[in-house]
Amino acid sequence: MTDENETFYQPQMFILLGVPGLEAAHFWLSIPMVIMYALTVLGNIVLLYIIIPNEKFHKPMYLLLSIMSIIDLVASATTTPKILSIFWFSSKKINFNAYLSQLFFIHAFSMMESTVLLAMAFDRYIAICRPLRYTSILTISTIAKIGALAIIRGSFFMAPAPFLIRRLSYCRTNIISHTYCEHMAVVKIACTDTTINQMYGITVALLVIAVDIICISVSYCAIVRAVIRLSSKDAQHKALGTCGPHICVILISYIPALFSFFTHRFGHNIPLHIHIIFANLYILIPPMCNPLIYGARTKEIRKRIVIIFQS
């Protein structure tokens, strides 16, 4: 009994169930996941291959896009292989420390990506509202500092999470109804008071997602005002056209994230498998779509991609 209680107090491992209720469909769920992961890896590597060696693309927006591609590649690599191993081989066990590591990377890289999206909104604001100061404000040095800030910010806000989870007791079960290591998923199975963890999760969400969404919204309000003042319709369409890819990426990044956040706390009537499927879309769709959107909507990148695949 002593060994069993100690195991569940601080379990040596957790068991990830995958998508409860849809176990028979795990293989079929893995097919679109493999396709999305392959597109994620291929698309982001192609973007990095285009941007990094070519000085023509060493411009603020492209450099921010390359930072996002690196974030997407690393974030996908920390989650998707484990999810596929659950779906294909029923490899559901994960070491306690490995769980904490994956949890840290998933959420930290999500915050880093949010920081880069905010920086892209600032880039569009300067380009449209302060075009004469664009090159003096957004230098390569500034972009490097933004990249460093994104890493520091994501790591700083997620640093307490592993310690807060370690202080919890898991005396009832070590089985987690999820496909990957999510903060609230493990908090829900704890048998001790989780108020601090819940307050921490809400605080971080407000300080990162809420702040970033507000700042992005303010930037685009200023952009819309500046565009409306333009006398030429062609100039208006051109200015807004440069914002199109960024707006699409914002929508596909924040909508699934907000859905996952709110359903964990308030969506008690939403079926568990629906929540888990959306949580998977939250980590699969943005990394896949980012290079596809910018590749399709950015003329210079599109031309370069055509040259690569024709050669």
Rank of each mutant, 00 (worst) to 15 (best):
M1L: 03
D3T: 03
E4T: 13
N5D: 10
F8Q: 03
F8A: 00
Y9P: 00
F14T: 03
I15C: 03
A24F: 13
A25V: 06
F27A: 04
W28Y: 13
I31S: 03
I35Q: 06
A38M: 11
V41Q: 07
N54Q: 11
H58Q: 05
K59D: 07
P60Y: 10
P60H: 07
M61L: 11
M61W: 06
L63T: 12
I67H: 10
A75C: 14
I86E: 03
K93L: 01
N95M: 06
S101C: 07
S101P: 00
A108L: 08
A108T: 02
M111D: 03
M112K: 11
E113L: 11
V116D: 11
V116Q: 07
L117K: 11
A121G: 15
C129N: 13
Y134S: 02
I137Y: 09
I140G: 01
S141Q: 13
T142I: 08
G147N: 14
G147S: 14
I152D: 02
F156V: 07
A161D: 07
A161V: 02
P162Q: 04
L164Y: 13
R172Y: 09
R172P: 00
I176E: 06
I176W: 08
S177D: 15
T179Y: 05
T179Q: 05
E182Q: 14
K188M: 12
I189N: 14
T194Q: 02
T203V: 00
T203A: 13
T203W: 06
V204F: 01
A205C: 09
L206F: 05
I213C: 15
I216R: 05
I216E: 10
I223W: 00
V224M: 03
A226I: 01
R229C: 08
L230G: 02
S231H: 03
Q236A: 06
H237L: 13
A239N: 03
G241K: 07
T242L: 02
C243D: 09
I247G: 04
I247A: 11
I250W: 08
F262A: 04
F266Y: 15
G267Y: 13
G267H: 09
N269Y: 14
N269S: 09
I270A: 10
I270Q: 05
P271F: 14
H273G: 00
H273K: 09
H275Q: 12
A279I: 00
L281R: 02
I283W: 09
I283S: 07
I285E: 04
I285D: 04
P287C: 14
N290W: 05
P291V: 07
L292Y: 08
Y294F: 15
T298N: 12
K299H: 14
E300T: 14
R302E: 02
R304M: 07
I305K: 12
F309N: 01
Q310H: 13
